[in-house]
Amino acid sequence: MFLNSIKHGLVVLMTLGTLLLCASAQAASTGGFGTTTGGDSYTSTTVTTLAQLKAAVSAGSHHIIIKGHIYGGSTLTTLTFASTKWNNTTITGASGGSAILENIQLKFDGEQLTKGTNIENIKISNITFYGNIGDLQALPTQIKGSSNTVGINYEGISLRRISNAVITHCTIYDTSDDLMSVTLSSNYVTISYNHFYFTSNWVNMSPDPVWNWVGEYTDLAGERLAMVIGANSSDSYVATGTLHVTLHHNWFGPNMRGRPLFRGWVHLYSNYFDNSNGPTGTKTAKDGNSYPMQQYEALQVNSGSTVVSESNYFYKTNYSNKISHSSSDYEYQFYERNNVYNQTTGSSATGNSFQSSPVSYSYTVTSAANVPNIVQAQAGPK
């Protein structure tokens, strides 16, 4: 039996079959949550420029193929998909792995829909996303709650109130917020064979601007965050019963300072957490203050989550598994088996062991010892 949630002191025990009874119908050939075909069956529209990409979105194309390098402009471009008319949508790169979206965010956002209604069946694949460092440096000081928030909201991919989504074979790096997020009761999401990292140019950017993301100022070079699943304690698995997410065969790093942060029901297997180029010491930013550069976590288990971690490889990570409590009284559950921790530093939480798989979908684990070579060879666009 799995202890799957504790809320307001109430302990709920569920059998493995009951735990994911709702998920059983969502089992996917992708090795994770979400039976997702996207808009593959629709007639495709191939775009090579920003104008063509915007026109395809305005026309409601459900199958968009990105070909070549598209630049979103110095003040960034967010393409927002905010209604159920976007159900069954595919955005993919042309074969060959050369599709690039620079300064462009794909934001699937069902926040304004009727409660209980999500945008469904979304597939994003085979694209490289990144931010232009010079453009981000040139923005005025970004302050949450002000009129200057362009960079604060800038990710590669944002999923908000989305059900049945697959993000696969993408590369995302050098964005000024998290590289991607899955929030606001999104559900049945599979994230596989992606590469999330920051460049050395990002780490060493000069000047190093200081922005205010969440009520306090910090330097842009230090905002090297991979991913968040669940926006806050009220947007957690325990609070909502949603946020079922699978992560497998992803490459996190190098130069990652923190996260992924989990508030959902997350199954992660055969991922490579790579801190091989982990910066150390401090960096002096534009305001004259010094900010720490060292990784402060590789994986964060937060209040309201259930996290099942298996056959992952942690290399030189600092504080590999970190437990973080919010102000809510929601408890977390953390389980693990067959992970490898190689030359890791700092204290790290140890998950409870388990024998039977807690998920009802079929999946194939890569032995943790083989994860670095296989994931580095296979992650990202092809």
Rank of each mutant, 00 (worst) to 15 (best):
T240Y: 03
F262R: 13
L79S: 02
A55Q: 14
S328R: 07
Q300H: 09
I167Q: 01
G110Y: 10
T280A: 00
F252E: 06
Y332G: 04
Q137N: 05
D40T: 11
I127T: 02
A51P: 09
N302G: 06
Y188C: 11
F129S: 08
L10G: 15
T364D: 10
S326I: 14
N194D: 04
N164F: 07
L268Q: 03
S176M: 01
S327I: 08
A56E: 05
S311A: 04
Y217K: 12
N118I: 07
Q105N: 00
S360T: 15
V210K: 02
S74R: 11
D235Y: 13
H69I: 05
H62M: 07
L20D: 15
T36S: 03
I65R: 03
A231Q: 09
K115H: 14
N132E: 15
G230P: 04
D135K: 02
N148M: 13
R257H: 03
W211Q: 04
Q295S: 07
K115T: 15
A377Q: 05
S176C: 11
P207G: 02
L19V: 15
G380V: 06
N321G: 05
S367A: 14
Q355S: 14
Y71W: 06
I167H: 01
S44D: 07
A23C: 13
P207Y: 04
S234D: 08
V245H: 03
S353W: 09
A56Y: 06
H69R: 01
S328K: 04
T364Y: 13
Y188L: 12
Y42I: 06
S41I: 15
Y291Q: 04
P207I: 10
I65A: 01
L225I: 12
N126H: 00
F314Q: 02
C170L: 03
Y193C: 10
I229N: 03
T36M: 08
Q376W: 11
N289T: 07
A27D: 11
R224W: 01
H8P: 08
K123Q: 03
D135W: 04
T168L: 11
H8Q: 11
M227G: 09
D287S: 06
H267P: 09
S348W: 00
H325A: 12
L184G: 09
Y154C: 02
S311V: 11
K144Q: 12
R337T: 04
L247M: 06
W211P: 14
Y332R: 06
Y315I: 09
L159E: 03
